[in-house]
Design a protein around this nucleic acid. Sequence first.
DNA 1: TGAAATGTTGGGGCG
DNA 2: ACGCCCCAACATTTC
Length: 483
Amino acid sequence: MADPVIVWFRRDLRLADNSALESASGAPVLPVFVWALSEEGDWTPGGASRWWLHRSLAALDADMRARGSRLIVRSGSSADTLTALVRETGAGAVHWNRRCEPAAAAQEDEVARALAGMGCRVRTFDGSDLSGSTGLLNASGRPFQVFTPFYRALSARLTDEGIAPSGGPPALAPPAEWPSSEPLDSLGQRPVAAWDAGLRATWTPGEQGAQSDLDRFLAERIGTYAAMRDRPDTEGVSRLSPHLHFGEIGPRQIWHAAQNVPGSEPFLRQLVWREFSRHLLRHFPHTASEPLRPEFAAFPWRTDPAALRAWRRGMTGYPIVDAGMRQLRRTGWMHNRVRMLVASFLTKDLLIPWQEGARWFWDTLVDADLANNTQGWQWTAGCGADASPYFRIFNPVIQGMRFDPDGAYVRQWVPELAKIPAEWIHRPWEAPDRVLAEAGVRLGETYPARIVDHAEAREAALAAYAQLRRAAQCGKQIPPSSG
DNA sequence: TGAAATGTTGGGGCG
DNA sequence: ACGCCCCAACATTTC
């Protein structure tokens, strides 16, 4: 029998369209997941993310067992664990699909060196990216910093998406002997307290759940995606993000399944935003914590713990903002339109650093993804690539009335406002006293009064931006000191 | 993947 | 019939 091949599962928790797994076919396969918290740098997964991971690993293991195999789970350093497994099992090679996060990528380099040092073969793949995405550079050989040229360049390269990605292998050849595995529950991913009722009611982690979500979306909702994607009060979007983050479904599978469906362009464009985010994080690894545009280091952010706490808890007094923040805590997910809007509120109305928002999203989202999260927040704050100009400030009332016209989204997540008529539900502070009384709302008691006045906050944000521009101008005029 | 301020136009009320 | 004003509706500019 040939030496077994270790397939090191990263953020590719699926059997279909898995480059690392396919490349091992023919040999006995030893699927391994290594839980190495300390290797995530400053970005250890939050509770919601761990909740998902735990279930996704359980689902992957079940899928493998149905194919005559199983998932070996170990905790500890990746390099130590994999080199030990190679020794234990006599594996001749380790294959994996590379991650894009700086800490993970550095770790993978170290693992590759350690394995090569013991004479073990290493093969790595871009299995978590669209074909042609990694290594893409502009005409002058530099990374793209604007989305549209990136999109065009990637589209030109997307040739093999016409070829159907492989389905999952019908069977996985097991090794002669299985090494030991730790029980999933020992990894501490499952929540101790029962805070996860909302998550359990909302999601089905695992490859099968991902595939059925995609199938249903393409069959039933892709036609109205362009019109409904901005409506958090409807089922307008695919909700594939957590599945995609953990690799329960791959971008190539989505691209291939959707590319010939009429009306799928705007949806696939979102997939390219994901590639763009990964591209940016790979080339500018400092951007997870620092602004891409260096002049933003001088931005006059405020420190306001009380306002930050109100934002996190969904108690700002702006119904659409609070609805989004509560949906996030309850379900581990927030509609994209609302993510933009609450991010604008934090960074522009409250002038709180985008990093605070990125950290909260990281800790609470089931789809927490360093590349997407970083790019999204920097985009909103105006300090990222192809960013929203700073003066683009969302008005939470207008956004609410436009994208949640009946107030159904607010009613669902902010039930204390449920009885306010649509006309006033996004601006209860302007409602006639009689309307509030009939709805049983007492502002400042049953629902918070606004923590800021948007019109005033907007002026303050514009002033802060003007200050930044002056500082940047100033910096240009003062020649750097020699030496 | 905004919003507010400002400018323009055209219909209708009115002296 | 005319000029004037008001203002809604739309377009443009500015932040």
